[in-house]
C-alpha cells in the first residue's frame, strides 16, 4: 500500500506517494529528478549514493524513502549556496580530487560531515572517514589533499 511522505530536499518541500519498498536513491533520482546521488554497487559498499540525512552522511541505496518522511535531505545539488560553490567543491576542483567524477558527490558529502564534526582532521582521520566511499580512479591521494585544502581554507 502506498504512503504519502513529506520531506525537505535541499531546502524545498516535497510530498509524494511512494511504495514502502521504494529505496531513497530511486526516489531522489526518479521522482525528485536529482541525479547527483549515483547508483553504483547497490550493496551499501561504494558510497556513490551518499546524501545527508539531518546533517549526517547516509547511503541512500540502503534506506527506504518512507524512512525519510519528515526529515531533511541534502544532495550534492543543494550544497552550493546562491551559486557559490561550497569550500569542499572548490577544493576538489583546485586539487584535482577526481578523475571520472562518479564517486565525487558521495565523497564530498561524507567529507562535509567530517569537517562539521572535526574542522582540522589529520590524513588518517580523513582516510577513515571516507572508508565507505570507493574511488576507482585516483588512488585517494588527491581526494585527501582536497579535504585538507577545504579544512585549511575554512580555518584561514
Amino acid at each position: 500500500m502506498k504512503r504519502t511522505i513529506a520531506l525537505s530536499i535541499n531546502g524545498k518541500s516535497h510530498a509524494d506517494e511512494v511504495e514502502p519498498r521504494l529505496l531513497l536513491i530511486h526516489y531522489l533520482r526518479e521522482m525528485a529528478s536529482l541525479t547527483g546521488p549515483h547508483i553504483a554497487c547497490e550493496t551499501s559498499t561504494c558510497g556513490a549514493c551518499t546524501v545527508m540525512l539531518d546533517g549526517k552522511a547516509v547511503k541512500s541505496c540502503t534506506m527506504f524513502a518512507v524512512q525519510a518522511d519528515g526529515r531533511k535531505i541534502l544532495t550534492i545539488e543543494g550544497l552550493a549556496t546562491n551559486g557559490k560553490l561550497d569550500p569542499l567543491q572548490e577544493a576538489f576542483w583546485n586539487e584535482h580530487g577526481l578523475q571520472c567524477g562518479f564517486c565525487t558527490p558521495g565523497m564530498i558529502l561524507t567529507a562535509k560531515q567530517l569537517l562539521n564534526d572535526n574542522p582540522n582532521p589529520t590524513d588518517e582521520e580523513i582516510r577513515k572517514s571516507i572508508e565507505g566511499n570507493l574511488c576507482r580512479c585516483t588512488g585517494y591521494q588527491h581526494i585527501v589533499n582536497a579535504v585538507k585544502a577545504a579544512a585549511a581554507k575554512a580555518g584561514a
Binding site: G47, K56, A57, V58, M63, T110, Q113, G132
Partner: peptide, 9 residues
C-alpha cells in the same frame, strides 16, 4: 563498525 555512513544509521 562498518564505515561513517553505516555508523550514522
Amino acid at each position: 563498525i562498518g564505515d561513517t555512513q553505516v555508523r550514522n544509521m
